[in-house]
């Protein structure tokens, strides 16, 4: 059975869900631009806290924060490596034995990077959770963005669980032939390496077959494309897009000047 998706659309009846995908894309991209303008991680954390009303109004308060746990280990690594080895270090925060030290600049740099990651992850995830992939493709097509890009977005979301279940099948098949997948990290790494071959080959084989299926559906036909799902840019979408860009400029300038 296919395992639960990490990335998936959750159908809810909310204001945010009903917005045009393009509007949501504009909001998400604006936020991402904003966090690269800011010069302090505290500003980024404020932007991060702003997700709460968004999440609340899309009725997904809990779900939005779920993927943070996957980033936790990256944060730890970032803080350790940057704290110890940041190249532009000047101030020692804590002196460690053997000539090592934790540097203030390193920690500030690490918190900047992690706060950016945090914001991108949460806002990006909210976008994915509230946008039907079909609507996204349809909206992209209307903007005359290449439809192949749209298909890649949609099919990736659908095919990831296929690959996961394929992986599970291969693991089970290998286990039934006596593969040991428990033990120390080295042992586990060694156990999973032989699984990559069949997984990779299988995926390539499936990709070829799927390509033929796509050709059988006139995927490469050179004509004006239409969409089954209808997406309309309404008045409220236009208003929100304009507001978002105004907000981006105001916040961007203030944060830059502060």
């Amino acid at each position: 059975m296919p395992r639960a998706l990490l990335i998936s659309y959750i159908d809810k009846d909310s204001f945010f869900h009903k917005l045009n995908p393009v509007t949501k894309l504009v909001i998400t991209i604006s936020v991402i631009i904003l966090i690269f303008i800011t010069k302090s991680f505290i500003h980024n954390l404020i932007i991060f806290i702003f997700i709460i009303p968004f999440a609340y109004y899309s009725k997904l308060t809990k779900q939005v924060f779920m993927p943070i746990k996957y980033l936790f280990i990256i944060f730890v690594i970032l803080f350790v490596i940057q704290g110890l080895f940041y190249p532009f270090r000047e101030t020692v925060l804590i002196q460690l034995p053997y000539g090592f030290a934790i540097w203030t600049e390193g920690l500030i740099y690490a918190s900047m990077i992690s706060s950016r990651l945090l914001v991108m992850l949460v806002y990006g995830y909210l976008f994915v959770l509230t946008t039907h992939p079909g609507d996204l493709v349809s909206a992209l097509r209307k903007l005359r963005l290449p439809y192949i890009f749209g298909y890649i977005v949609l099919a990736t979301l659908q095919i990831i669980p296929r690959v996961q279940s394929q992986m599970a099948t291969i693991i089970e098949a290998q286990k039934s032939r006596g593969l040991e997948t428990k033990g120390s990290i080295v042992k586990r790494l060694r156990a999973y390496t032989p699984l990559l071959g069949p997984l990779f080959m299988g995926s390539v084989q499936n990709a070829i077959e799927r390509a033929t299926a796509l050709e059988a559906r006139a995927f490469s036909a050179k004509c004006e494309k239409t969409s089954y799902r209808e997406t309309i840019i309404m008045k409220k979408d236009k208003v929100i897009m304009v507001l978002t860009i105004i907000c981006l400029i105001i916040f961007g300038v203030t944060s830059w000047l502060l």
Partner: peptide
């Protein structure tokens, strides 16, 4: 193989069926 016959372009059966027509530019 039933699995690879599906394009993954549709989130449900209706959308999967309409995919070919979308590519041919059939009116909605």
């Amino acid at each position: 193989s039933p699995d690879t016959q599906l394009t993954g372009a549709g989130m449900n059966v209706e959308e999967e069926l309409s995919f070919g027509l979308e590519n041919l530019g059939t009116p909605r």
